Computed example of a mutant assay.
Amino acid sequence: MGALELKGVTKSFGSTEVIKGVDLTVNDGEFCVFVGPSGCGKSTLLRMIAGLEDTSDGDILVDGKRMNDVAPAKRELAMVFQSYALYPHLTVRDNMGLALKQAGRPKTEIRAATDKAAGMLALDPLMERRPAELSGGQRQRVAIGRAIVRTPKLFLFDEPLSNLDAALRVATRIEIARLHRDLKATMIYVTHDQVEAMTLADRIVVLRAGKVEQVGSPMELYNDPANTFVAGFIGSPQMNFLDAASLGLAPGKVGIRPEHLTISRDQGEIPAEVSHVEKLGGETLVYARNPQHGLLTVRLFGEHDFAVSEKVHLTLQRERMFQFDPDGLRRR
């Protein structure tokens, strides 16, 4: 079991409140991702769950047991850090088995646990190497393996892929998703990368300035955002926002995703001038500027030949647009 419940959790550093009354339930076996911009409090919240930061108010419960006053080592959690946090003088095997050794487990048990984790992570040929002899991706897999051997109730990941290059991030992300399926464990994952959140999560928790803006599955947040912050944060490229009144609607904001704009050289409702074109092979992104609405992004499937400074016309697929109040805090 590994269910987590946060009840009115707050955290203050001096007079500055950085976590502001978070209520959240993470179900047993769920992959939950905390996402938000830098400084939103997501890593602080994860460290509070781990016991590395005190809780100013509220309760943290694991399987119904209050954890606030339980030492980190006694919480039955395992944390994977951005920096890997491996001991440079120990081999891969010894790094992975250290927690079990410190707990006084028999050598045969430690060997079996590290061998099993190594097999899951394709680390078998590397077990006698030291961290300096490993690539960044291999080090991160060792850090994940160290968490696996502890068989924790919760796995906590703090931006584990941010030090890897693009190709390794994709490969390691796939490995983490596979591990979740195989282990059926509860995982809580912090990232500022909404692509990681969309591809890994059963549920996403969107945070801003220490508050939860919205919780839901990736597609729920993508297709039913509660406000302009969530709408703009979830989805890549970012959602376009336009002035509603100039489109003949009630004053406020209109949001529309780049794939729901069409572009034409002949006719359309919004005249614009092409500012930049990105040809990505499978898709083309056209950035076009309108004096009223600013820079708008159009996503097209396949290759298209639009030129910088070309005059074009954009049309909204109105059935796919979102309407928000003028302050952007509520959907209409």
Rank of each mutant, 00 (worst) to 15 (best):
E310Q: 15
E283C: 05
F34Q: 01
G104Y: 08
D54E: 14
H276I: 14
E76L: 05
Y287A: 08
R146A: 02
G51Y: 01
A245N: 01
L300V: 03
T91Y: 02
E269S: 12
V26R: 12
E159K: 01
R330Y: 15
E17L: 09
D224E: 11
V26M: 09
V195T: 09
A78F: 10
F157M: 02
D182R: 12
G268N: 00
S15K: 08
P218M: 05
I188W: 02
L221F: 09
V205T: 04
A244I: 02
F324L: 03
D28F: 00
G58A: 13
G248P: 04
V205R: 07
S38W: 00
K101E: 07
D224Q: 06
L61P: 13
L46H: 02
I263N: 09
H293R: 03
P88A: 11
R141N: 15
V274H: 09
R105K: 11
G282L: 10
P72I: 08
V62G: 03
E283A: 11
N227P: 04
E259M: 09
A117T: 03
H260F: 11
V212T: 15
M219H: 12
G216R: 02
G39N: 00
D202C: 06
R105F: 07
G104W: 04
G2I: 00
A177P: 06
P125L: 10
R318P: 04
L6M: 08
L154R: 13
Q292M: 15
I60L: 02
V308I: 13
H89S: 10
M1T: 13
M48C: 12
G64N: 00
H293S: 04
A103P: 06
V205N: 12
L295T: 01
H89G: 04
G282Y: 07
E259K: 15
G14L: 07
K20M: 01
V33P: 00
K279M: 12
V70S: 13
E303L: 12
T108N: 12
M96Q: 07
A307V: 05
F81Q: 05
F241Q: 08
S43N: 01
G216F: 02
S83Q: 13
E109G: 07
R320I: 03
Y84F: 15
V62S: 04
D94P: 12
V9F: 01
L123A: 08
G281R: 00
R289T: 14
N290F: 04
A288M: 05
R130W: 05
T25W: 14
P218N: 03
T55S: 10
L154C: 10
T10V: 10
V142H: 00
I176S: 14
